[in-house]
Design a protein around this nucleic acid. Structure first.
Lengths: 112, 112
DNA sequence: ATTATATATCGTAAATATACGATATATAAT
DNA sequence: ATTATATATCGTATATTTACGATATATAAT
């Protein structure tokens, strides 16, 4: 059992769920937060800020990279990460498209 | 190993990651989509629409319920679900707060 | 009362995620 | 050349998720 059925859903829903999954751990949210606030490349200090071992942080960074939410570059001895604003904005747009404008659509009536 | 370190992050980041996690499977996105488009309670038809066994769909529904993204009510023989717009809007707001307005902040310069 | 139908829950197998120590790699400093 | 430092990768233990068949539960229909 536990065969993968994810591919049987639409491309859009797979894409959205992949991005959501990338943000489904507080450590990765925390990393995004640091990068977003500084708006520049961050090298190394990420490990100091998180309550996780270096290997674990590296693993989380890799997941954010794979999802396309951050970009990375090797800069001499250190590595350097920053937010991929394009992907992030795409996520935001797709999410907003999914549910429409909750306010104006007048669909706030709850039926249960 | 694999001790849970999630509680060592801020409440906000835990909350955001929980909601993201709830949306981290295309089946759950698909369910939200059906409920959001119809804007009324849906009973049963969800199972017909998804490529998953009834037990699996029920499990996904429970996860969306636990996350607070949907509400459910038992209506006779059937069960009835609808979107919890309050939670959904809260997620949207928190997400937007996290990254600010990407357009106007002028932070779109990429450094790597 | 019996039967049919809808949904939830239980049990469980397989897959994936989380976490970290140990180690590899690669540059910088001496 | 040697040493120190930063980061990535490997191996692995444990936890969680995904998926479904079987079964329980609860109402509706006959």
């Amino acid at each position: 059992m536990a065969i993968n059925r994810k591919e049987e859903f639409t491309d859009t829903d797979q894409e959205l769920s992949m991005l959501a999954k990338a943000m489904s751990h507080p450590a990765r949210i925390a990393i995004l937060r640091v990068l977003a606030i500084r708006r520049t490349c961050i090298c190394g200090e990420i490990v100091d800020v998180l309550p996780l071992a270096q290997a674990t942080v590296s693993q989380h960074l890799k997941e954010l990279l794979t999802a396309g939410l951050i970009k990375g570059a090797i800069d001499g001895k250190k590595s350097c990460y920053c937010i991929n604003w394009d992907t992030l904005q795409a996520f935001n747009t797709t999410f907003n498209t999914l549910f429409g404008d909750l306010e104006t659509a007048g669909g706030n009536q709850n039926c249960c």
